[in-house]
């Protein structure tokens, strides 16, 4: 594994593991229960990913490099309306089953299907920002658009990435996202399901942000990525004549 970039932060060494790899023995706390399994006093990897075993804090973390999106309550997701019912929409959130959005939730008032058609408000193909309200094994996920920043998306572009790379786009305490936003002046809404809505001042910056997101996705498992993204945005800006050339 490359060592560059890991000097300044107190980053623990990360190792690339595959399913069935032994991570540690003893008493540890599993920080990512969906990717690590305890058998007896041993801890095994369940996916291909980057494992961090902290022997002082006694914690194990394994970030997958691939994987599906599986909804959990309170996730911010970006959905695309798939079909329209009488009192609800079916929304594709890249989960195994479509999410349900009730018209009364979206409109904030009761609806009478005899008087109005839901396609007047949200049509097939419309993009919405929503939160998962209820989800368990007995039902399809129910999403809500009530809340700050939620609702229909009217401007911008949607970028799709692998859902497991989402934490990398956000970064530690939002560091990567603030680099992307700060360097380009775009606004990002990052959905847990791997869809990102980007709103940019102009087309050039939008292209740069999309390329940068793609770069993060491709190099998510490498270290020192934030700095490289900063550099990447800068060179792209110069290349497009947005800055420099003075």
């Amino acid at each position: 594994m490359s060592e560059e970039g890991s000097k300044k932060r107190e980053e623990k060494p990360r190792t690339l593991v595959a399913p069935g790899d032994l991570l540690a023995r003893g008493e540890y706390k599993i920080l990512t229960p969906t990717t690590v399994q305890r058998r007896g006093d041993s801890y095994y990897a369940l996916v291909v990913g980057l494992a961090t075993v902290d022997d002082e804090a006694k914690t194990i973390k394994l970030i997958p490099l691939q994987g599906p999106y599986y909804p959990s309550v309170d996730d911010l997701v970006i959905g695309i309306v798939r079909s329209i019912g009488l009192t609800s929409w079916e929304v594709d959130i890249r989960a195994p089953s479509p999410a349900i959005l009730y018209a009364s939730d979206y409109l904030g008032r009761p609806v009478n299907p005899a008087r109005e058609s839901l396609s007047d408000y949200l049509d097939v193909g419309d993009v919405i920002i929503a939160k998962i309200q209820v989800f368990d094994r007995t039902r399809d996920p129910l999403i809500t658009t009530r809340g700050k920043g939620l609702g229909k998306v009217t401007t911008g572009a949607v970028v799709e990435i692998s859902p497991v790379k989402v934490p990398r786009v956000i970064g530690k305490k939002g560091s990567m996202q603030s680099v992307l936003e700060g360097e380009t002046g775009c606004r990002l809404v990052v959905g847990r399901n791997g869809r990102i809505v980007v709103n940019c001042p102009n087309k050039d910056l939008e292209e740069i942000v999309v390329l940068a997101i793609r770069k993060i996705e491709a190099e998510a498992h490498t270290t020192g990525l934030t700095d490289r993204i900063k550099e990447f945005i800068l060179t792209e800006k110069v290349r497009r004549g947005l800055i420099g050339g003075r």
Partner: peptide
């Protein structure tokens, strides 16, 4: 494993 589906081994 390539699909990222959790597997014990």
């Amino acid at each position: 494993a390539d699909a990222g589906i959790p597997m014990k081994d």
